[in-house]
Amino acid sequence: MDKVEQFGRWIGRWFTVLVVLWAAFNYFLPQTSLWVVPNTSYLLGIILFGMGLTLRLEDFERIFRRPVPVLAGTVAHYVIMPTLAWVLCLIFQLKGATAAGVILVGSCPSGTSSSVMAYLAGGDVALDVSIETLSTLLAPLALPGLLLLFAGKYVAIPTTALFVSTLEIVLLPIILGVVIHSIFGRKIEKVTKALPLVSQVAILLIIGAVIAANHANLFTSATALVIPVVILHNLSGYGLGYLFSRIIRLRDPQRKAITFEVGMQDSSLGATLAMKYFAPAAAIPSTIFSIWHNISGSVLSSYWRNKTKTKTSVNAAPAAIDSKN
């Protein structure tokens, strides 16, 4: 199990590079992952079941002990990202399934990799996990409602089917994971060490499936604007999330957590639902988002980490001088 854990850490360290390489590989050899296309919902269920296995009752208690920052971050996520997606669709005049795909990824709960980015940046990981948990639990209601509000003019929104699917794909696996963790306790901890690797492999498989299903239409005039839209969506989410956290006067670690929680989406969920309920083109924004937010999140977390180290070194220097005097 130690070797599996070490391999998972290695995959995590190079995950962004692996995502880009795997996406390129499936673009040129789409037959590699076509078998995954009908199974993406099962893969996402595995990812979220793993998330449930890592959750404890304390994670839910924390939401009630510190409700203000958790609720504020969750509301900010579900207000900022869908609205940004809708505004960008208007500005860039996106239509049909492409516009619906942008709004779909904007309406998803927080991304599972945000807690990793918050940890690397020196953010409040506990707050990050709490917001991620709450936003995911609210997804069955929030996601169909936001799609109906913002994307209804682009495509028909099967709200009831989306609600049921989100319950089945998102909520049930998490609840099952939490229940199993509660029953078996520490006995399950050996298994949880392999979960990051399982989740990363599942995400790669979903990305490969979406690329394979869309390889003929990935770089066409109809989808050419998706890349800048996705980049602007993610970066604006970071900026507005950070601004919001400053306005409500949160501490620096909390600002970092909310920044990542607002700006990073569960793009795997977006891609899975797009493939199931909309045209294949609707999954392209989620796939590009999955690749891009791993890149931008890594850069931002590195910047904050280096900034913290620099500040610590500057503050330590006068102290060292004073100790000598």
Rank of each mutant, 00 (worst) to 15 (best):
F15N: 03
V87T: 07
N214V: 05
T160I: 03
R255L: 02
T272F: 00
E168F: 09
I227A: 13
I46S: 00
F28K: 12
V68H: 14
D2V: 15
L120H: 10
L44Y: 05
L137R: 04
L55K: 00
L269Q: 06
P140V: 06
A151K: 01
S236A: 09
A126P: 10
A282L: 05
S301E: 11
T160K: 15
F49A: 01
I174C: 02
L243C: 12
L232R: 07
P38Y: 03
V179L: 11
P140F: 04
I247S: 14
M81Q: 03
I227N: 10
V105K: 00
P173W: 06
I169S: 00
S301P: 09
L149T: 09
R249C: 15
I175L: 05
A320R: 12
N26E: 03
K307Y: 14
G177R: 01
F15K: 08
D266L: 03
R66L: 14
Y42T: 03
L90I: 11
S182P: 10
F92Y: 07
R255T: 10
C89I: 02
H77F: 08
L147S: 02
N294G: 00
Q254R: 14
Y242V: 12
R249D: 15
V68A: 13
A222T: 10
Y303K: 15
L176V: 11
P280M: 11
A156N: 12
N315E: 15
A279R: 07
I183A: 01
R9W: 13
T83I: 09
T16F: 12
E61T: 14
G208V: 05
V170A: 01
E168A: 09
E61Y: 12
T310Y: 15
T98H: 13
A213C: 09
H233C: 00
Q31F: 15
R251K: 14
T287F: 01
G52N: 00
G270L: 01
S236G: 03
T160L: 11
L29W: 13
S114V: 08
C108E: 08
S301F: 05
L147E: 04
I288W: 04
L273N: 05
A23E: 00
T159Q: 13
S135N: 05
L120S: 12
A202F: 06
A139P: 05
L300P: 13
K307D: 15
